[in-house]
């Protein structure tokens, strides 16, 4: 299958699922994971540390033009958009908020899908808005694999429902346990 990048988008109600997912991944999980999550823009510190407590992998907020490497979970920094560039690096931007959001889940998904094509997985989790719907649709169009948390499993089903509706043919609509299994299935020989 040869997946090279996993992008997870989440908003309200996604924190618990995120922590369960990253807690379940081994420290040598060979695919880099990018988290595009809506977060308080003025709270600079604490979020990475909170995720770090749950994670065996290294959790970092990437600085501008940082190289994407396996073994890391990258969290989109507060008040910046996080782009994935063709060179396999991140780029940050303070361009205007999209759908009232910065980081915008759409932008990270769209740029990641464009850069990694069929080597990209996009996962949309719980949220009370529609950010990410366009982004995951783009990942599908670029040949990537699309996963959406089952709306009945999500604390806030708006975001999963919007993603399913926009993309039409999402590859997997599954609950959080199955998302974890799915992530393991990506690394089976």
């Amino acid at each position: 299958m040869n997946i090279k990048l996993i992008i997870i988008g989440g908003s309200a109600g996604s924190f618990q699922v995120i922590t369960r997912i990253i807690h379940s991944l081994p420290n040598d999980y060979p695919i880099p994971v990018v988290l595009a999550l809506h977060r308080l823009k003025h709270v600079r510190h604490g979020f990475v540390e909170a995720l770090m407590l749950k994670s065996k992998m290294n959790v970092i907020e990437p600085h501008d033009k940082q190289k994407i490497r396996a073994g890391n979970i990258y969290l989109a920094p507060a008040n910046y958009h996080l782009y994935v560039e063709l060179a396999g690096t991140f780029a940050l931007s303070t361009e205007e908020a999209v759908n009232h959001s910065r980081p915008s889940i759409d932008l990270t998904f769209m740029t990641g899908g464009y850069a990694y094509k069929n080597k990209c997985v996009g996962i949309i989790l719980s949220g009370a808005n529609k950010d990410g719907a366009l982004g995951i649709k783009k990942i599908k169009e670029y040949g990537g694999i699309t996963v959406v948390q089952d709306p009945s499993d999500a604390q806030m089903p708006t975001m999963p429902l919007a993603a399913i509706d926009k993309t039409k043919n999402v590859d997997h609509v599954i609950n959080s346990d199955e998302i974890i299994k799915f992530l393991y299935s990506l690394i089976k020989k």
Partner: peptide, 9 residues
């Protein structure tokens, strides 16, 4: 200019 944001602009 960095390509991704330049494209958007």
């Amino acid at each position: 200019f960095a390509i991704t944001s330049f494209k958007r602009r």
